[in-house]
Design a protein around this nucleic acid. Structure first.
Length: 283
DNA sequence: AGCATTACCCGCACGC
DNA sequence: TGCGTGCGGGTAATGC
């Protein structure tokens, strides 16, 4: 379920930033349960279990679509991929429990307070890493879209250096970290740019508007607690504000032309064929 | 050579 | 029942 806004929403819920939510901060882990071993990218289950026991959660950060649990020693990194979810629960049992509470529960952390954290992931694409050095996992990531150091001039330069189709470029986590299929479609629509447009054909104005659009849709997503689509992830409302994503056949909010669905890089892509032209406009 | 692009793959649930 | 689709991304093959 995760793009940057959904992951950020989950982070805020986990650290108790939302009213009435208990916080993971300060919780001591008394043990763990693992129901699907491939959920654990590294280390081995035995090393994981012995190391994580007794650790305290100091903070929870986010980088791109990754969640980073800062422990008193080491880091637990989580990527939810397509269908992963994290939930706080008081019914996870003890570390000796072997039966998952819910279908598709893949791993638990059990806290000294009696409750715990469950990682649920129907499609089994999500991964956990326990590492002494987060850079081992995160080093390939590009800049955060909201980083103030990312100026319009810098972004324009990046687009011209890359020389790639805009949509696959925005989905490339080494270019910008955190954008996925929904927010790339929404940002490209807001900037009135065709997803197949080559990145080095953008004018300085185009680049600046794309950066504004990216930041705007991400911020809007966070404001609405992310998007809830399909059967995964609950609580978000950004799906009610989609302009083009999953709007195939519906009128473009800008010009009324029916939204079209095309496929780029194996990903469903939604555009207004009238507002988002492939060729740069001639003056 | 070195990119950029494309194909395929990975479990599972859901809608048509 | 069967098929297409999917909030992701790694790897391998192919193309320029």
């Amino acid at each position: 379920m995760p793009e940057l806004p959904e992951v950020e929403t989950i982070r805020q819920v986990l650290i108790g930033k939302r009213a009435g939510e208990p916080s993971l901060l300060g919780q001591t882990i008394i043990g763990s349960s693992l129901f699907w071993s491939r959920t654990l990218a590294t280390p081995s289950p035995d090393v994981f279990k012995s190391f994580v026991k007794g650790r305290t959660i100091v903070d929870v950060n986010r980088r791109g679509k990754f969640l980073i649990f800062i422990l008193d020693e080491g880091y637990l990194i989580v990527h939810l991929r397509m269908s992963g979810d994290l939930r706080k629960a008081s019914n996870l049992g003890s570390p000796r429990t072997v039966e998952p509470v819910l279908p598709h529960d893949r791993a638990y952390l059990h806290f000294a307070t009696g409750w715990g954290l469950a990682f649920n992931d129907p499609r089994k694409f999500g991964r956990l890493w326990l590492t002494p050095d987060p850079q081992q996992v995160l080093k390939h990531l590009g800049i955060e879209p909201t980083d103030p150091q990312l100026t319009p001039e810098e972004f324009h330069q990046m687009l011209h250096t890359a020389r790639r189709q805009l949509k696959p470029l925005l989905l490339d986590q080494s270019f910008l970290a955190g954008i996925g299929n929904i927010y790339s479609d929404e940002a490209l629509f807001q900037a009135r740019l065709h997803p197949r447009r080559t990145s080095d054909t953008l004018s300085e104005t185009d680049s600046a508007e794309l950066l504004i659009a990216i930041r705007h849709v991400l911020e809007l997503g966070i404001q609405h607690n992310g998007a809830s689509i399909d059967w995964v992830y609950r609580g978000g409302a950004f799906q009610n504000y989609f302009q083009v994503y999953q709007q195939t056949g519906n009128p473009c909010p800008n010009c009324g032309t029916p939204i079209e669905r095309i496929v780029i890089s194996q990903r469903g892509t939604h555009i207004c064929p009238h507002c988002q032209t492939l060729q740069p406009e001639k003056n």
